Simulated assay, not measured.
Amino acid sequence: MDRIFEQMTSWLKDWIVDGLMSLLTGTFDSINAQVGSVAADVATSPADFTPGVFNLMKTVSNNAIMPIAGMILTFIACYELIQLVIAHNNLANFETWIFFKWIFKTYVAVMLITHCFDITMAIFDVAGHVISQSGNIIQNSTAVNASQLAQMRSTLEAMSIGELLPLFMEIGLLNIGIKIMSMMIFLVIYGRMIEIYLMISLAPLPFSTFGNREQSQIGQNYVKSLVALGFQGFLILICVAIYAVLIQNVSISSDIAGSLWSVLGYNVLLVFALFKTSTLSKRIFSAQ
């Protein structure tokens, strides 16, 4: 009878240990997969990230927004001509060269609005190049290696069933928390890209304001916002690099739950930092 009870206890313990190892492996794989894809995602241009959405935004912009931008450009060009004519003491010092100046400024404004998508994509291409080059330098891994997993298993096998059951529940809760953090990282990355798509869909409107010094502030702020969005990806990459260094310092000791709490804490810190990248990037580039 004792032998049967011992075998059942051993079987139950092995089952719990296998379940815990599966849970731990899934937990680490989830966060590692999400964090590991960040560098590739933020370096991808809007045209390549989701081509279908990008083409949709471009079509809508060309067909719905571009005509309105043309009307705004026409109004600003007329307003600029009036300003140039009356600028010299209400026509007292009238000079014909102002017409050539107006033609040149209008030509530049038309070229800008015509190639607004090319200019917008160039900004993100430059930012993507910077991110790609930085990603080649920053290559720290966030993965838990096989020796650490083996150490975890040895620690679990040394525990009794009474110790394993509460640990199972605690690790289950930690697993849920880490998966939530993984989802938050996903939201930051894809939320940034959706914001980029929304910005580029209205590109012709702010670009139509460059024909006048006063109104061009709208276009300048728009370009600053695009640059801020582009280089937000660089800040995201830096956050992930810092996280990778910190996570490597977490020692998988006999206190497995404590180690996982440390991992969860670093994940919370990472998510908080990722959410701050948008504000920080806009502050750096003075984007409103």
Rank of each mutant, 00 (worst) to 15 (best):
Q215K: 10
E157N: 15
M183A: 13
L173D: 07
S225K: 08
S216R: 10
M193K: 14
Y243A: 09
M169F: 15
M152S: 05
I176T: 15
V240N: 08
G233M: 07
L229T: 02
L156G: 06
M181S: 02
E195I: 04
E195Y: 13
S154W: 03
M199H: 12
F186K: 04
F186R: 03
F234A: 09
L235Y: 02
S216L: 00
Y190C: 07
M152N: 00
S225A: 15
S201H: 08
S182Q: 09
L237E: 12
S160I: 13
M193D: 06
I178S: 05
G191L: 03
T209E: 02
V188L: 06
I242E: 12
Y190W: 11
I196A: 00
E214V: 14
V223A: 12
G162L: 13
I238Y: 05
A244G: 11
I171M: 12
N212C: 03
M184P: 00
S182F: 05
I200H: 11
S154T: 09
A158L: 00
T209S: 02
L187H: 08
A244E: 01
T155V: 15
Q220N: 10
I189R: 04
I194A: 14
S201G: 04
I238Q: 04
Q232T: 07
Q232D: 05
A228C: 08
Q215G: 08
I196G: 06
F207Q: 07
